[in-house]
């Protein structure tokens, strides 16, 4: 069953077609990498799927609900309840500790639970760094805090924008291992990347070019 479905989705800025009649289905539990060069429409697609922007035309069905017609208030609620976001620049609040950053996502979703937040950090291997401020963490550690924060509310869709863009190879592997583990546990992952190595480990790769899907293929080397 499709968790996410884009039907003839276009996003037009003046004369520029950032997305041009895109059709895409992502099933529950699937791990999809979206690739493409700069200006191909990856970020626009990420914003629309992440309920941070609306398409000019077309339908975006998330869990059966057309989010292209929802109000800004509803989109905030859907983003909070159904989507976990992972960013290239981590975007942690610099005056909150690792555990407080995770708890902040709980705070907006439901009720903060420090023990659960600590368990989420332990899951990404940061149990002993929970009380550290972001400035005291390495880039890889900050990204893992970001993943723990994205996972804390059990989202239906984990949306990652260039999650390894600012990481060295060792930390990139750590993050991809976590993604692999999450996929095995049934989490639906959509990873926007320009890095072929990151795309290769996903189950399926969708490649964009000039706002259109130029390829959509299952990765032969994908290991379940």
């Amino acid at each position: 069953m499709s968790l996410l479905e884009l039907k003839d989705v276009s996003k037009i800025y003046g004369d520029l077609h950032a997305l041009d009649k895109i059709n895409l289905k992502v099933d529950t539990g699937e791990w999809v990498a979206i690739m493409g060069p700069s200006g191909s429409g990856k970020s626009t697609m990420m914003n629309i799927i992440g309920c941070m922007d609306k398409p000019t035309s077309g339908e975006v069905l998330l869990d059966g609900v057309d989010i292209s017609r929802e109000s800004a208030k509803s989109l905030t609620r859907i983003r909070r309840d159904k989507i976990g976001l992972i960013f290239q620049q981590f975007h942690l609040v610099n005056y909150l500790t690792a555990v407080e950053n995770v708890m902040m996502a709980q705070y907006y979703h439901s009720v903060p639970d420090e023990k659960e937040a600590l368990r989420a950090l332990a899951r990404v291997g940061l149990a002993d760094r929970a009380k550290h401020l972001p400035s005291q963490l390495s880039g890889g550690e900050q990204q893992r805090v970001c993943i723990a924060r994205a996972l804390i509310n059990y989202p239906e869709l984990l949306l990652a924008d260039e999650p390894t863009g600012n990481l060295d190879e060792a930390n990139e592997n750590v993050v991809l291992d976590i993604f692999s583990q999450l996929h095995k546990e049934g989490t639906t992952l959509v990873v926007v990347t320009h890095d072929p190595e990151v795309a290769e480990v996903a189950q399926r790769t969708v490649t964009l070019g000039h706002g259109k899907i130029i390829s959509d293929k299952l990765n032969e080397g994908f290991k379940e």
């Binding site: 983003r79 976001l85 975007h91 996502a105």
Partner: peptide, 16 residues
């Protein structure tokens, strides 16, 4: 601004 954007991305309402 970036922190406010992040909070909104995480689902913070305007009132919050």
């Amino acid at each position: 601004r970036r922190e406010i954007g992040l909070r909104k991305a995480l689902g913070a309402s305007d009132a919050s």
